[in-house]
Lab assay of single mutants.
Amino acid sequence: KELVLALYDYQEKSPREVTMKKGDILTLLNSTNKDWWKVEVADRQGFVPAAYVKKL
């Protein structure tokens, strides 16, 4: 499975999103959308801005 690194803190703004902290390592589930990537963090799945994460 592919992992991404959170480059910035992100606070979810809708139930479809997830909160992450800078430095978090997240499991990447889907990166087909260039703006929003689906990730899993702490047993929750949701979207984060693609610009806020980097593939490892």
Rank of each mutant, 00 (worst) to 15 (best):
D24K: 03
K13E: 08
N30R: 06
L28R: 01
F47P: 00
T19L: 03
K54P: 02
W37K: 01
N30E: 15
N30M: 08
A50H: 04
K22R: 11
Y10K: 00
I25T: 06
L7R: 05
D35A: 11
G23R: 02
Y52T: 09
L3I: 09
E17F: 06
T19W: 05
D43I: 07
L3E: 07
W37T: 03
T27F: 12
M20P: 00
D43H: 12
N33V: 05
V39W: 00
D24F: 05
K1N: 10
V39K: 00
K1L: 14
I25V: 11
L56I: 15
K55E: 08
S14F: 07
K13A: 11
R44C: 06
M20Y: 01
E40L: 09
Y10W: 11
R16I: 12
R44K: 12
R44M: 06
L26T: 01
Q45W: 07
L3K: 11
K38C: 14
K21L: 08
K22H: 06
N30S: 13
W36C: 07
D35Q: 13
L3D: 04
T19C: 07
K22L: 06
D35C: 12
W37A: 04
R44V: 07
A42Y: 13
A51P: 09
K54R: 13
A42E: 14
S14R: 09
N33A: 10
V39Q: 00
D9A: 07
W36N: 02
W37C: 04
G23P: 00
T19H: 05
K55V: 13
L3M: 12
V18Q: 03
Q11H: 14
V18K: 02
T27W: 14
T19A: 07
L26R: 01
P49H: 03
P49G: 02
R44Y: 05
E17Q: 11
A6S: 06
L56H: 05
L26Y: 11
L28T: 02
K13Y: 05
N30I: 09
K54V: 15
N33T: 06
E40Y: 06
W37M: 04
R44A: 06
K13S: 10
I25L: 09
D24G: 04
V18R: 02
Q45D: 10
L26F: 06
G46M: 05
E12H: 09
G46Q: 01
P49F: 03
Y8P: 00
L29K: 05
T27Y: 11
Y52M: 13
L5M: 14
V53S: 01
F47I: 07
P15C: 10
N30W: 06
L7E: 04
L26Q: 01
E12L: 08
K55L: 14
D24T: 08
K22F: 06
L56S: 04
K22Y: 05
V48F: 02
V48C: 04
V53T: 05
K34H: 12
I25K: 05
E2R: 11
T32C: 13
Y8L: 11
V18L: 14
A51L: 12
V4T: 03
